[in-house]
């Protein structure tokens, strides 16, 4: 176990390092460089000043050297400044992380609960109209563009009915009610989009378990208490579902990007979009590294959770 974890963490560290370089290089290929933007902001910069700045920022150095400089600073805890907001990157990221956790955490709990419930019902009522309707809803959720759904909701609930704020963050004095009002639409959007795939997965897992020998044996032996049967099957069906959920946890911070942008929710996803679209290189880079790290950590957690739930699988040993 210890060895396995060590191996996985080393592997994840290497992946993170490689990824930071790839993203660094890709961002370098985006239009303009920091100095072009600086010059646009201050047209009176002279060519001499420009040359000086170029040397100071190291813009003309090869990409590997620039990356090395960035990496050394980052490893010492210096993640640099955001060019647009003129603040240290970490000062921007931490509140954004908090906001994202509130939004996606709420959506996550709701959609997982809903998905497992719907999936179980569909599996038990397999082939009936209830199953078909749940299936249709699941497909609609998988197939709908989240930003369009958000757009329609804003029009309906904010513009036409005026029930909810169109977007943005609640002010502190609005309290819990304000928070709730601002959360309803983005959470609904995320829940609709995320529940579909998970519900279908839960249904398939449940059907698989229900068809297994021990359940059939239990039935044949006269175990007719339906609730007990369901509880028994559910526990086993949850294993693959929870693994998928754990894997999706990694997407928690970037997966909601479009929804956050639609509802002007100041979270990580929106921050990343703004940073990329606004050429805020350093901010984008650090945000993406954060997100990638969470994905890698979530994958390791999923592996561990899987072993806990299913003792047949032992870490690090693969069946031939």
């Amino acid at each position: 176990m210890g060895r396995f974890l060590l191996g996985r963490i080393t592997g994840a560290g290497i992946v993170l390092l490689l990824k930071s370089f790839v993203i660094f290089a890709l961002i370098g290929l985006m239009p303009g460089d920091p100095l072009d933007l600086m010059m646009n902001a201050n047209p009176e910069t002279t060519p001499e000043q420009m040359a000086h700045l170029r040397a100071m920022y190291g813009v003309d150095l090869p990409i590997t050297q620039r990356y090395w400089t960035w990496l050394v600073a980052a490893l010492q805890g210096d993640f640099g400044y955001s060019r647009i907001q003129h603040r240290p990157v970490l000062d921007i990221i931490i509140p954004a992380l908090g906001n994202t956790l509130i939004l996606t955490g709420a959506a996550f709990v709701l959609s997982t609960t809903l998905a497992v419930t719907l999936g179980t019902i569909a599996a038990l009522k397999r082939g009936t109209w209830i199953d078909r309707i749940i299936n249709l809803f699941a497909f609609a959720g998988i197939s709908v563009p989240s930003f369009w759904l958000g757009l329609l909701m804003i029009y309906l609930f904010a513009v036409r009915l005026g029930w909810l704020p169109a977007g943005g963050m609640p002010r502190p004095e609005q309290g819990f009610g304000g928070m709730l009002a601002h959360l309803v639409m983005p959470v609904m959007t995320l829940v609709i989009v995320e529940t579909g795939g998970l519900a279908r997965y839960a249904r398939a897992a449940m059907i698989e378990v229900l068809s297994q020998d021990y359940i059939r044996t239990a039935r044949a032996k006269g175990l007719t208490d339906r609730r007990m049967l369901v509880r028994h099957a559910l526990r086993n069906a949850l294993i693959p579902v929870l693994t998928l959920v754990a894997l999706q946890l990694g997407g928690l911070f970037s997966g909601a990007a479009l929804t956050e942008a639609m509802f002007a929710w100041r979270g990580m996803g929106r921050l990343i979009l703004e940073a990329i679209l606004g050429n805020d290189y350093n901010l984008a880079l650090v945000c993406l590294m954060f997100v990638t790290a969470t994905i890698l950590i979530a994958n390791i957690c999923a592996d561990i959770a899987y072993t806990w739930l299913d003792p047949r699988i032992s870490l690090g040993k693969r069946r031939r």
Partner: peptide, 27 residues
């Protein structure tokens, strides 16, 4: 397969946006 895992752990939408925004003249 390590390469595949590497691609899988990419935050998909942000990376797509960066790729879509890449200045091809720089290439």
């Amino acid at each position: 397969m390590r390469f595949t895992d590497f691609m899988l752990a990419m935050p998909a939408l942000p990376v797509l946006i960066i790729l879509a925004a890449i200045d091809l003249t720089k290439l």
